[in-house]
């Protein structure tokens, strides 16, 4: 287990503060992509408050950032429910842009294809393609089997291909 985390678990408030500084950017972006930038700030803050309260429960089965993103994910879901926010709004993580000429795939069409995905599919696409998480990490954060992550990702891309080229099997 990370020494800083171990110190924080013993109640070292300095270590806790360092953990916040170290992981804030990643947690904030993760939250902002789920609930939008305004609510993302609240969600990130709430995630760290939960971290302070629950760090004793972290047993080191997964990496600390993965555990923290799991907390952030649950916080975002609760916040979205509470504030009736759209889950994974496209504008929160996808830049439609105007510079479509240089792109291999038309961004407007891509945005439409992404918008057509279910929240579960959008979620894994964002986590894998945008946030760069591995399948195992995504499974840990979402608390689903790794096979489910693989399947969702496969179907998400299949759906997008259908949308963009009208093909697929």
């Amino acid at each position: 287990m990370d020494g800083l985390v171990a110190q924080a678990q013993k109640g070292d408030r300095g270590a806790m503060d360092r953990l916040v500084c170290e992981h804030y950017a990643r947690v904030y972006r993760f939250c902002a992509r789920r609930v939008g930038e305004a609510a993302g700030q609240d969600a990130a803050q709430e995630t760290f408050v939960t971290m302070v309260k629950s760090i004793g429960k972290y047993a080191g089965r997964s990496s600390f950032p993965t555990w923290l993103l799991g907390v952030a994910n649950r916080t975002c879901m609760a916040l979205a429910r509470k504030r009736r926010l759209e889950p994974m709004p496209l504008e929160a993580w996808h830049d439609g842009g105007t510079d479509t000429e240089s792109a291999a795939i038309d961004r407007v069409a891509l945005a439409q294809a992404l918008r057509s995905l279910s929240p579960e599919h959008r979620e894994v696409v964002v986590m894998h393609e945008v946030e760069g998480l591995r399948y195992a990490e995504i499974a840990e954060i979402l608390d689903v089997p790794e096979g489910t992550v693989k399947s969702r990702l496969h179907h998400a891309f299949l759906n997008m291909r259908k949308q963009l080229v009208g093909g697929g099997q």
Partner: peptide
Amino acid sequence: KEIQSSAKEPEVKGVDGARAAAR
């Protein structure tokens, strides 16, 4: 590649608030 390149990178803000909230 296209999804990755079109991803937004939200500007990080509110770290002080989070630190204060954690304290």
